[in-house]
């Protein structure tokens, strides 16, 4: 039992390394941004370790710097981060029996887009220690990037830091493309979501990005569920 926990934990660490690298580059930018908004590198790092959400943190720092109200801050967090509820709900269906309520309270802290994606791609039920491994390495990368970016400012030359901007998206592509290639229904859902999101981006520009992602993905997934329902027991 002990042994399998350890195995799960290190499997999580291994599979979290690409997330940690991507997070480092993204949160590096967040650290720079926060310091420019008048928030110390230390405070920025505290924000990173307590929130672990890129878009939410960037919006939050903007509101704090602009002297916004607490209500505004909370509403913006709910809007931008509401997708985590869908992800948490989706993951709640695939948990191993060893996932006790206490483990759920701890592991919920680390449900981010990328951690969700890696967990959802697991062919086996999720164990707490696997998730802790993924979360630990990812949050370490996230906080280290924030601290480095905040404290040191521009360490990397622009050509390198701009290339780092694509890392997380590259990872998303690597997660979606192989199943979409095997399974036509996933392909249709993925392409529909991308098309809707493109429509919001260029045409319905008054909708915030957080809402655009929520609407596009919910509509595409609902269409998929109607057109290609999954039978019980289908993986």
């Amino acid at each position: 039992m002990k042994n399998s926990r350890k195995q799960d934990f290190f499997k999580g660490i291994r599979q979290g390394i690409p997330i940690a690298l991507g997070y480092f580059s993204v949160s590096f930018g967040f650290g720079i941004m926060a310091v420019r908004s008048g928030i110390s590198a230390l405070a920025a790092s505290v924000i990173s370790i307590t929130n672990v959400t890129s878009a939410g943190q960037a919006a939050g720092v903007g509101i704090i710097a602009a002297g916004g109200t607490l209500i505004e801050l909370i509403l913006v967090q709910i809007t931008i981060n509401l997708r985590y509820s869908l992800m948490a709900l989706s993951l709640s269906q695939r948990l191993d029996p060893s996932f006790t309520p206490a483990h759920r309270l701890f592991a919920a802290y680390g449900i981010t887009d990328e951690i969700f994606a890696v967990c959802a791609a697991q062919p086996v039920p999720l164990t707490p220690w696997y998730m802790y491994g993924v979360i630990l390495i990812s949050v370490a990368g996230w906080v280290a990037g924030t601290a480095t970016g905040g404290a040191a400012g521009e360490i990397l030359p622009a050509s390198v830091s701009s290339a780092m901007g694509i890392v997380l998206y590259g990872m998303f592509i690597a997660i979606v493309v192989p199943p979409a290639r095997r399974n036509r229904s996933i392909l249709v859902v993925a392409v529909s979501a991308a098309a809707l999101s493109t429509l919001f981006w260029y045409v319905f520009t008054s909708v915030s990005q957080g809402f655009a992602v929520i609407i596009s993905s919910a509509a595409a997934a609902a269409a998929g569920a109607v057109l290609f329902p999954r039978e019980e027991g289908e993986a």
Partner: peptide, 17 residues
């Protein structure tokens, strides 16, 4: 089915464009 498709939909919508 909806929850099964959500990850792919969210990641695609976040990536493109």
């Amino acid at each position: 089915s909806f929850l099964y498709y959500i990850p792919y939909a969210v990641l695609s919508a976040m990536t493109i464009p």
